[in-house]
Amino acid sequence: MPERTRDFGHYGAQGIKGSEAVARQLDQLAGFIATPITQQRGLMARLKYLTRSDHARKAARDAGLTVTDRTLKAWLTGKRRPSKANLAKIEAAYRAVRRQNVARYLLRRLNNGGGTRVEIHPFNQSQVDRRFQRVLEYRSLNIRHWDAIIRAWAAGDMAAQGDAWVDAIVDLGSQWGQYEYVSAVGFAA
């Protein structure tokens, strides 16, 4: 069985970790607010999402948005504008809360009907010397259990998500190590 990749890109290969590609796809499925936080509309949408219930407020505080209710009210009424550091905290808290809220829905959809077919596109070898290139091909895999991947994604734990991704791609057989790094991963829910 192959070991995990230790020095990816040493010969010029280009790609990202498969777990990161899965996280990007899950983020896309989560449907984050499209308007940037730097615009008033995007800021207000995020603040309303984070303050619409006691549960959302608690989750925002747990995610790192620790401002007073007075400051939050001033932001919501438009009397004050958050600093760049607070804008970053608001964005991080919003993404963390949104992931937690969407995780259960995505888990149900991805596990439905025996799992979801995932398309795995191999990493780019165009910059690798011909003698070091591998024969890689597009692969597809049906992932039946998304629990560990979704749980790690919702928590923002990239190490756990990497381990969960490797556990899922082991089903590719002896070639799974070639797909730890990819150019893209595609699936739909």
Rank of each mutant, 00 (worst) to 15 (best):
L50T: 03
S174V: 07
A92R: 11
G64I: 10
L47F: 08
A93E: 08
V185C: 02
G156V: 11
D147P: 00
M158K: 14
V135K: 12
D167E: 13
T77R: 12
A155H: 09
Y105W: 08
P2M: 09
D54I: 14
R81I: 13
K84V: 11
S183D: 02
S83Y: 02
Q133G: 01
G115M: 10
R117Q: 15
V170P: 00
I150N: 10
K84S: 14
L76S: 09
Y11I: 04
A154L: 09
E180I: 06
D157L: 08
D27C: 02
H55P: 00
A93Q: 06
L107N: 05
R117N: 07
I169S: 05
V182R: 02
S183I: 00
A148D: 12
D163K: 15
G114P: 03
K79S: 03
G115V: 06
A96Q: 13
Y94P: 01
Q133E: 07
E3I: 04
G12D: 09
T77L: 09
A164Y: 06
I169P: 06
I37Q: 07
G177N: 02
S53P: 08
A93G: 07
A184L: 08
Y94R: 02
S183F: 01
N86H: 05
R109H: 09
A59Y: 06
R80H: 13
I149V: 13
Q178Y: 13
R52H: 15
Y11M: 15
W176F: 15
E3M: 09
A21Q: 04
A30R: 03
S53Y: 11
T38H: 08
G113D: 02
I143Q: 05
L141E: 03
G15A: 09
N111C: 06
Q175H: 09
F187L: 06
H10T: 12
P36D: 04
N124Q: 09
T66W: 04
A30W: 05
A88R: 11
M1S: 13
Y105M: 10
N86A: 03
Y105P: 00
R57G: 05
K79Y: 00
E180Q: 11
V67E: 12
R57W: 06
H55D: 14
T116M: 04
L106I: 00
D54H: 14
P2G: 13
A85T: 10
I16A: 12
T116Q: 04
G9W: 08
A189K: 07
A30L: 08
D54P: 08
V185P: 01
A155V: 04
F123C: 10
